[in-house]
Design a protein around this nucleic acid. Structure first.
Length: 484
RNA sequence: GGCGCCGUAGCCAAGUGGUAAGGCCGCAGACUGCAAAUCUGCCAUUCAUCGGUUCGAUUCCGAUCGGCGCCUCCA
């Protein structure tokens, strides 16, 4: 079944259905600049993209996802070259740069794995696409959209009338001084206009370089995404994503480059994720509230709780990260996971007590599924989608307390949990078995319980807990377990 | 100066021109050898403030207060 999904398109400034014509949705994502570990703000963006991609896939669409790795850039050069002698060869410079980027690319891939972020189908590296970029720049130059100055090449914004359409910049209204002083780039006065941006940078002392028609140099920041996007997804991209900060200038410049070269619309929908604050303040190294995933794990945070905290809030809303919020996410997950275990087990004998109202479990499940998809389809409204899941859990728990659900009904509920987990990846079927030592302790405790030797039963419960297993006694006398 | 976002209970948060979803925390019961899980009930006469439009506004309009973003470093 293919369900309709709509997303907020920054270009149109409204929620629009994801193009239905193409049988494969092509997504391009601006990936990490690999000069350090990703911080939780970066990761929020990658989690939002994972949410979007998984939702499209769960909705029955085919997705091809390309995420680039930026492995040549100012900060990478700064950090990788600082210990090299002034007379280092170009090969040594490239080697040092590569050593740094390979290390952090590896770290990034590990973070994706830890957070259960699906690997993109292609992850091209900028340094593998220098010829593609040069070709693109030459093409822009031939079309009169770019010009060379002293070994560098700049994009002529005045030649691209639609410039500013994505960021909705009004050239007249822009503060004159806004761009002055913001850049200490010495190249600035070589440009025809202050807002023209660089496509290819002439080499400077102490930098690695590549040969080009304009002499030795390196690519500008924006050109890599145009070149790799076109190379790996073709001349048409359905969805292009990144953080809100990339809207301008990065994505605006990508449009100018790609559309200038292709001569037609390049991207249908631009979808941007909001930023993260930390405990009410902007995250920054100087405030000491700057966290990587590894920092959180060191503090004992379950990475999946972080994943859930990010994804249970709307992606276009500023999220105020806090450890209290993480705790709340962890507790909410416990409820869903406990419900899954309950559905996996057989129903307990009917209990007593008040009951709000009788319901038809199958009909109730169908209703929850509809509500869930309506919310997810409406610009990934996860708070509302999860509300549908939580009310289902409440209702079915209450029902199961009075009238135990049958095996088939339980399996249908489990199928829905799998369906939702295919997006949230936080309440999977728990696999794995207990080792013999724990099994033996559980058997010993059962014997103690039968003998009503409560002190011994308690002692064994604690011993088992010390091994990381929490026991759950049930009404029918059986004993369930979960990992702490 | 230009463009734009946000302000809903202790915390997180959805939402609509028709009278406030959901989660976390908390409280009181039920069940229970203990524990866990679960259930039942309670937890915003009110949606920053003040006006306006309307039969009716949290939802539309205006103003005010407060927080924030972008206008060529940035997820």
């Amino acid at each position: 079944m293919v369900r309709s999904i709509s997303l907020f398109n920054t270009l149109a400034r409204k929620v629009e259905p994801v193009a239905g014509a193409s049988d494969q949705i092509r997504i391009y994502t601006c990936g990490p600049t690999v000069y350090n570990f990703a911080h939780i703000g970066n990761l929020r963006t990658f989690l939002f993209q994972d949410l979007m991609k998984r939702t499209l896939r769960a909705a029955g669409r085919n997705v091809r996802h390309c995420m680039n790795i930026t492995d040549v850039e100012d900060k990478i050069i700064r950090d990788s070259q600082k210990d090299l002698p002034a007379d280092a060869t170009n090969e040594q410079r490239h080697g040092a740069m590569s050593t740094l980027t390979v290390r952090y690319t590896q770290a990034f891939l590990e973070d994706l794995e830890t957070l259960r972020i699906q690997r993109p189908d292609v992850m091209p590296r900028a340094t593998d696409h220098i010829p593609h970029m040069i070709r693109l720049v030459k093409d822009l130059e031939a079309k009169g959209l770019a010009y060379a100055r002293e070994g560098s090449v700049y994009y002529r914004i005045a030649a691209f009338p639609d410039y500013g359409a994505l960021a909705h910049l009004d050239k007249e209204g822009m503060r004159q001084g806004a761009s002055e002083g913001a850049s200490g780039d010495a190249d600035e006065y070589e440009r025809d206009a202050a807002s023209d941006f660089v496509l290819w940078k002439a080499v400077k002392d102490g930098e690695p370089w590549w040969d080009s028609p304009w002499g030795p140099g390196r690519p500008g920041w924006h050109i890599e995404c145009s070149a790799m996007g076109i190379e790996h997804l073709g001349e048409h991209v359905d969805i292009h994503t990144g953080g809100v900060d990339l809207i301008f200038p990065h994505h605006e410049n990508e449009i100018a480059q790609s559309e200038g070269c292709l001569g037609h619309r390049w991207v249908d929908a631009w979808v941007h994720g909001e930023f993260l604050m930390v405990e009410g303040e902007k995250m920054s190294k100087s405030l000491g509230n700057f966290f990587t995933l590894r920092d959180l794990i060191e503090k004992g945070v379950d990475p999946i709780a972080f994943r859930f905290a990010m994804q249970s809030n709307h992606y276009r809303k500023l999220y105020n990260f806090s450890f209290e919020g993480l705790k709340a996410a962890e507790n909410a997950l416990k409820r869903i996971r406990a419900f899954r275990r309950r559905m996996e087990d057989e129903g307990a004998p009917a209990g007593q007590g008040e009951w709000k109202e009788a319901l038809d479990p199958r009909q109730r499940l169908a209703q929850a599924r509809e509500e869930y998809w309506a919310a997810m389809g409406d610009d990934l409204n996860t708070p509302e989608a999860l509300a549908a899941l939580f009310t289902l859990i409440s209702d079915l728990n209450a029902h199961d307390d009075r009238v135990a659900l049958g095996r088939e009904e339980r399996d249908e509920v489990l199928a829905f949990l799998d369906e939702t987990d295919s997006i949230f990846a936080a309440w999977p079927k728990e696999t794995g078995s207990l080792d013999a030592q724990v099994e033996a302790l559980i058997e010993a405790r059962k014997a103690a319980k039968t003998a009503k030797d409560w002190p011994e039963a308690d002692r064994l419960r604690h011993a088992i807990q010390a091994l990381g297993i929490v026991l759950e006694d049930r009404k029918d006398g059986s004993v369930g377990w979960r990992r702490a």
